[in-house]
Design a protein around this nucleic acid. Structure first.
Lengths: 188, 188
DNA sequence: CCTACCGATCGGTAGG
DNA sequence: CCTACCGATCGGTAGG
């Protein structure tokens, strides 16, 4: 149902999440999979290749979610709510990968390192421009747009470190609470 | 003016910040200090000891700042503002150490690992109780107190990753913007 | 603070 | 997917 390569990547993602990329050895990964370390290389090229796939797939997901949220017609307030919902969805549906992306991207080598930094900046710019659009439309009243965009994104990203699928709050309730808090915080 | 041990810790903090704890070798650290790796052990017991000092010193600073902020008389709103100011101050005055604390604590071994997790939870509880106090006094109107506390802390902690001492915003302006955003977000 | 060195472990390859 | 193995590097110690 799931091929060996995906199994390796999934197991690696969980290990990278708890132990960190640099501190996870290929022998640990192999043991978790019930195989020898050398055998892993029949399926992947390198340890870093796994990290690359995790980071760039997540980045893709975040951008796709944002694009869809923003391309619908309507007031900026609704677009921002949709963007928050999309971001929360990517995280709750990819908990381990989202954590690894957030905390381990620095271990990428060039040119991937520069690329992922660039993508993170672009994503932040997307939110900043959304806030500015709301400012322009008269919906928002924001003193420091860059700081506000960073505060919002940091809050949303923090979700990866406390969300529990079996916890009290459903993703829908989480989205409502984030939206409530930040929309009140920036409403005109 | 500054002894060798502090010099080692400071240099290590900067290396841990950019390369990560696990990926920083004692030989790299030694080279940055202009000495041999073995010589470092005349001043410190182990690589992890450096990380321990970084994490627990920062935790101390955060708790001390919070305590001072909250022990003053006055409305909860002012206490929260003071707590935000204290947290921002600790980060801006210990940029590298704050980043390392936030991202590398998981590499601590027991019993330090459990202790630092405990401290992080306690600190979060402190903020949660402050929010609840404002709720009780009628100053705040918060739907999800735990989520709100986490959002606030994640926003403040994110500062460690974008604050530039030579940047546009002064710490005072940053505190004002965070306070503005969140107090509006939770005001009754 | 240095030289010399330890055992352990690392990511990865050769060859089957 | 395994056995066998590579060179490199790791954190740390002994002894001065």
């Amino acid at each position: 149902m799931i091929n060996r390569k995906e199994q390796i990547e999934q197991t690696a993602t969980n290990l990278f999440r708890t132990r960190g990329f640099a501190a996870t050895s290929m022998r640990e990964l192999a043991q978790s999979l019930g195989m020898e370390a050398a055998s892993i290389y029949a399926h992947i090229r390198s340890k870093e290749e796994i990290l690359q796939k995790i980071c760039f797939r997540l980045a893709d997901d975040f951008f796709a979610g944002f694009r869809e949220a923003v391309n619908q017609p309507g007031p900026v307030t609704e677009k921002l709510q949709a963007a928050i919902a999309a971001h929360v969805q990517v995280i709750t549906e990819n908990l381990a990968a989202a954590t690894v992306f957030q905390t381990e991207w620095r271990h990428l080598s060039e040119p991937y390192l520069s690329q992922i930094i660039q993508l993170q900046e672009e994503y932040e710019v997307n939110f900043r421009e959304l806030l500015q659009a709301g400012q322009a439309s008269g919906e928002f009243d924001i003193a420091e747009t860059p700081l506000t965009a960073r505060a919002l994104l940091a809050s949303l990203n923090g979700l990866a470190q406390w969300y529990k699928p079996q916890g009290q709050l459903t993703p829908t309730e989480i989205v409502a609470s984030f939206s409530h808090l930040f929309l009140r915080g920036i409403a005109a």
